[in-house]
Design a protein around this nucleic acid. Sequence first.
DNA 1: ATAGGGTTAG
Length: 614
Amino acid sequence: MEQELLRILRTLDSPAHLTQAHARLLAAGLAATPRLLPALGVPPNGFTFTFLLRACALLGLPRPCGCVHGQIVRCGFGSDVFVQNALMDVYYRCGGGGAGGVGAARQVFDEMVDKDVVSWNSIVGVYMSSGDATGAMGLFEAMPERNVVSWNTVVAGFARTGDMVTARTVFDRMPSRNAVSWNLMISGYATSGDVEAARSVFDRMDQKDVVSWTAMVSAYAKIGDLDTAKELFDHMPVKNLVSWNAMITGYNHNSRYDEALRTFQLMMLEGRFRPDEATLVSVVSACAQLGSVEYCNWISSFIGKSNTHLTVALGNALIDMFAKCGDVGRAQSIFYKMETRCIITWTTMISGFAFNGLCREALLVYNNMCREGVELDGTVFIAALAACTHGGLLQEGWSIFNEMVEQYNIQPRMEHYGALEGRWDGVIGARTSMRNWGIEKVPGSSLIQVGSEVHEFLAKDTRHERRKEIYETVDGLMALMRHTEQTPWGLFVASIVVIQCLIGQQLCKSNMGKGIFPVVLQLYHAEVAVLMSRCCFIVTTQTRMNFTFVRAGGKDSHWTKWWSQLTVAIIILGALFYLLCSPKLEQGSEAGLLLLLGGAEDSLASAQSSWSSF
DNA sequence: ATAGGGTTAG
């Protein structure tokens, strides 16, 4: 049958007959048959290959690129400048952005008979995004002609690496600039944290477009200045979907999830934009943080109705959301529905089960993951180990820990030890010490009364008026901890936290009702376990600890200032004390821990009474 | 075709 049709097709010689035959094949459902389709005789052109190459780039597979390259040469497009430019881009992307990709792209570039500005711009961009600024600048200087895109490519390259000094130099040298050039400077300054500089570029710009405004909104949101972000957002002459997304994620990053949702609702009320995946990811994660079942149901039914494709990011966010509001069954069904998963998907599902106390199920997910041969990272092991500890499955925890080290060659970090509380039991008898110090009475209490006011703290609370400070403090400490892990500075930071907690308790106790301390510090069990295991006592991971210093009444008095100054002084002295006592401590060494314990025990003992009586 | 703003877990 197929042979017969092929024979007939070959005999056709006029376009009209060909069209007729094509129509008949379509009607018979045979047009897509791989051997008949080429016989219809439509020759490829430049567009064929640029689209084909784009498909290769999306797949990121080097092998089809080679085949397509062969076809390009065979069909006589070896010197078509459009096709060659696309080919260069594809070879770079399929090389994974590394040196191999750069080499392949460079080879295409060198072999090109005709090069136009786009070819030069592309190769400069390739060198820039591979991190080779010197190579890029060499090519840039050698360019026979430059247009505004050439200049922008270089500015973008320097801005991406955070080298705003060089970016500025190039920007100032530009013979002419367009909106993109200015916007590159704005976003470059914003990502390097210099909002002032970004703002001054923005103010000097006389062709501000929606991108400039949006970049400024997210710049202010990033440094936590939501008032200015909101003000700019409200005054934007034109908003698009990305602007709304920027405002919503700005609220998310500052833990103001309810306002994120309100902004989303405003956008929906306005009705001009349909939420895209980025919007939904942000909204879902805001719902997850709020843990409100009504919001979660609403957004999930909205997603269901809007027929949105379940991408990896959205799937991950949904799994997290359902798990956080206790519906682990729906979390799991999302997990199964996902066509592609990444390491975050697995991590989220494992922690989702553990979060709901289903630690065996968490381990099943872990086992499935290992069977599927997913490439694992250190983080997924933190989740798996925490699941074991949480469920009291210490033996499983240890065997996973060993697998991690021996089979997957992942260096254990302090978070892994933190997840395995049993680690330190033999060293210091942590549980006993805890009981002795009366620590068990403090955790679990998330209500603190100061004077006549009751301050309530729930997990990841978003309602407290000083939540910005809470999360900034915690985030800052965590960042510092990450930055300084494996060095004595980790101890330094940990000691600050402990001392702050102790002082906070004492201040609360002795100054009820006077207006106490302007910092509210809230830590969760995992972080506390890590910090505390450094400072020689362990917190059971089942118990969430809320350390809070609360200021009552909301009025600043001279007492507040006085206490703040005193506290800062004590913190610095305490930190110095730790530093002097433990300058040569080796992290993780038992001798070091015991030494540290000796130092810490004294200061903790004095605070013991306030812990237990609180 | 080459350059610019927004995207999830621990």
